[in-house]
Amino acid sequence: MKQLRSYLLVLLVSCGQNSLIDCNKAAKSRCVEQTDDEKAVAALNSADYQTVIDILKPLIDAEPTAYFRYPRLATAYAGLAGFDLANAATAKSSGAQDGLNAFNAFLPAIDALRLDLYHEYLGYMGQARDLLASMPEEQRTADTDIYYSASSEFQYVLYLCLHVTMCLNVYQFFVDGDSIDADGLFAFKECPATEMIANLLQAALAAQSNNQELSSKVKELETKILGEEGANAQAKLEAYVIKQQKGS
């Protein structure tokens, strides 16, 4: 009897709150493995983006029509690009800002000493955007009851805008008086003017049904850029950026 009481007391004082069958901890009993999708979501919520990519990318390659994984993977790419939607969603509004400048509060700043890093950020943001672009439109629209489709549309519009914003930051970074440092800009192949304008148009169209305000802001920006003087899209964009830089 005394031995049993001692056993119970030991049991009482030794118990904590951690799961006894969690595979991540020193399990003494049978391990219950989480599914890959559960692990990916856990990693996503811990901002462990590389793990999310390591888990989800092979799953998407193996099962490309399981579209629910696309927005999750896109979030991880955007995270590696330095953007966290959760922070943006809970941040206090800093007031009205022109065009897409409001997004800059949630994006990494371009640093002269670490331009290579900005290349990486742009690359990841481009991957987030392109991944969502590869979804069929009916899977990426707020007009269906598919649980991930509204989020996919929202993210798609957002990443189109964020990528353009980051590219505009690059252009602004290389403004030198009345011109743009062409050599510096040349290195940023992620930001061709024609693609940026096309992305703006795409974002304006995609946001039209669910976010009229953003759609009109983006359309306005596209109109302003195309309204500048210049022989082609590149020249018009450069003229716009120089004017903005002077204005600021």
Partner: peptide
């Protein structure tokens, strides 16, 4: 609240 979606119906967004 989940920062980047819950394990069942999460889509990467809060």
């Amino acid at each position: 609240a989940w920062r980047r979606g819950d394990p069942i119906r999460g889509a990467g967004t809060p």
